[in-house]
Write a protein that binds this DNA or RNA. Structure first.
Lengths: 126, 126
DNA sequence: CAGGATCCGTAACGATACTG
DNA sequence: CAGTATCGTTACGGATCCTG
């Protein structure tokens, strides 16, 4: 099974360095937005549906409110997640992925898939 | 002071909190190995074929030899990349993805894809 | 409950210079 | 060329307490 038809992702040794650099730009952009220890885990958590602050924190071991708050703000700024405040007593806040945030699902899917096999590899005793 | 009777609070509609946490584990494992500002960019660079140290550095703007050296070592430790020294004068060293490292291609592919659309979104003026 | 404020140690990263 | 060494900065991230 030959995978490449006319894939633009051909950058063997004969292509210029600057061309290779250009290929890297989108990856860098993605990384800028998704970087950090928690963001992708939070996004994965939110792919299951709306969540309250505390619940997200419960689901992700080691995540402190300070970091969660900070990461959620960045996700909001990048329009990947949205915040909804409900006037209950005490106040409750829900977060959910935006439509744009949901476009990350395939990426998260791959990450989860690779992580699963990698995990087995580690446990098997690398 | 804990008032929770049991941790069986709803995650989405059918998953418990602990089950959600489990889903997150593989993602966390993947992140542990791929973390940092440069690793994924280096891997992408290597998906195009063997590269020498200096060439990788040239292709990734802002990457210093110190960081490149450090990241390559970690990739080696995790068996994602391999190092080959050639007894030339001066010495030349080539890096390439291992078979295992190549299993990251689908993930990088998604990252590149998402990053491309995200880049357009940014440039369009979010 | 949802978070902000503060303090503080560590780890990541950057710039520059230097060696075999 | 392929890295190291050194130094300095910034970001990460934990702990604790506090507020609306």
């Amino acid at each position: 099974m030959k995978e490449e038809t006319h894939d633009k992702r051909k950058c063997p040794s004969h292509l210029s360095t600057t061309e290779c650099t250009k290929m890297l730009l989108p990856v860098k952009d993605a990384l800028d937005v998704l970087s950090g220890k928690w963001k992708l885990q939070i996004i994965l958590s939110l792919t299951f549906g709306k969540k309250r602050f505390k619940q997200i924190q419960r689901e992700i071991p080691g995540l402190t409110p300070k970091m969660l708050s900070k990461e959620l703000k960045e996700l909001e700024i990048n329009q990947l997640a949205s915040r909804h405040v409900y006037d209950t007593l005490p106040v409750s806040v829900e977060y959910e992925l935006t439509t744009y945030g949901k476009t990350l699902k395939p990426l998260i899917g791959e990450l989860h898939k690779w992580g699963s096999t990698h995990r087995k590899r580690i446990i098997a005793g690398k």
